[in-house]
């Protein structure tokens, strides 16, 4: 069963923002195909009557009071920044749109 194509892996790499090389795309396509083959078996028992579990220990309503706590100093905030200017994080030009 070959389900995953190189185009699909290239698309996933774009969604995940990883500039994979053509060689990586090719080998990942093969590997993913094998992995997906063996993990697709979850569908065998995942019937509609079974609820999904997203937290292993069920809790709810965990909140924080609306009280101001500690913040980072500007030095701490920027200490690991690859590039900065005017106390802000500097990035290359964005060709796209403002969200």
């Amino acid at each position: 069963m070959s389900e995953i194509s190189e185009e699909q892996v290239a698309h996933l790499a774009n969604l995940a923002r990883i500039a994979l090389t053509p060689e990586e795309i090719s080998s990942l396509t093969t590997e993913l195909d094998q992995i997906v083959d063996s993990i697709a078996k979850v569908q065998e028992v995942a019937t509609p009557d079974v609820p999904a579990t997203s937290h292993p220990v069920p809790l709810s309503n965990v909140f924080r009071p609306d009280v101001v706590g500690e913040t980072l100093t500007i030095e701490q905030a920027l200490q690991n920044a690859p590039e900065q200017a005017d106390n802000r994080f500097k990035v290359s030009a964005i060709l796209g749109e403002e969200q």
Partner: peptide, 19 residues
């Protein structure tokens, strides 16, 4: 590569997406 960690510039620069 924006707030911390490694940053790699692609050959010939690039947009933030490419970085």
């Amino acid at each position: 590569s924006v707030r911390f960690g490694m940053r790699v510039q692609p050959d010939g620069g690039g947009t933030v997406e490419q970085v």
